[in-house]
Write a protein that binds this DNA or RNA. Structure first.
Lengths: 141, 141
DNA sequence: ATTTGTGCAAATCGTTTGCATCTGA
DNA sequence: TCAGATGCAAACGATTTGCACAAAT
């Protein structure tokens, strides 16, 4: 079920976003979007690209991830720690975070509701609400 | 209202946490805890210490912040971006995040409730739920 | 006396930038 | 043609580390 998505689809995405469909943007787009929801760092994506014989520099991977994010094709995920994670799922949703290995999984938006949100400070508006549910192994009793 | 807290209080905190009350831990503890809830980076705290004539190295500030965090005296806040923020409020609470200037303010725990939390994956337990409400200036219409 | 903490400078890690070269429209 | 992309290596900023010295128990 992985390759419903074609290069032409990616090209469409890029054009719609106002980005030139260059070789590396197409290839990276394929990696990112062909298998559904993913959470990647620049390093992970770069390694994956090299493994598949796609030739891109790390700098270009960084550029591409940021450009995709600006265009709304990706979302940056707030986790503490040094590395920046990008999420290919841009719908309104939250995350489970496995403290043991730093892995993330999606929680669809509908599954959590926030109630009693306090008043937003004067002149400000909410751009997004991030919820991170941190999980650890249940201790064996 | 700032100095209800004495060096002796800090010393008690440290001892209870199993940390030796050294000169720099006491001084940094004073800065962190005397004025109530704060959100600091290592750099901010270091600069503040120097300004007050406290002599500590940046490396020691980093060590101290991490040790305090391990002992539960501080909490690390998950924000994307390069710098690590530490929160002196360790109670169960959430944050408003001002995207413009990267500032944080606390939302007390009682003011938000989460409903319909999805089932936690097998063998895992929730250690914490972080909620970050991202704010931007309301555009002038 | 022994263990633990500290300071400094060098090392590391993730990320960004400058610039010469290439490529898609 | 030519603005926009890319690759590379050097630059960067935040954080960590190694090791000699100092302080706490």
């Amino acid at each position: 079920m992985s390759s419903q998505i074609t290069l032409a689809d990616i090209e469409g995405k890029l054009r719609k976003a106002g980005l030139r469909p260059t070789r590396q943007r197409l290839d990276l787009g394929m990696l990112l979007f062909r298998d559904g929801d993913r959470h990647v760092t620049a390093e992970i994506l770069h390694a994956e690209a090299l493994r598949e014989g796609i030739s891109v520099s790390l700098a270009t991977v960084y550029n591409t991830l940021h450009q995709f994010t600006e265009c709304g094709l990706l979302r940056e995920v707030a986790i503490e720690g040094s590395k920046t994670y990008f999420d290919t799922n841009i719908s309104d949703h939250h995350h489970f975070y496995f403290e043991r290995d730093g892995k993330l999984i999606d929680i669809e938006g509908a599954e959590i509701a926030l109630v009693d949100l306090p008043p937003v400070p004067e002149g400000m508006e909410i751009t997004r609400v991030d919820v991170l549910i941190r999980l650890a192994d249940k201790p064996k009793l």
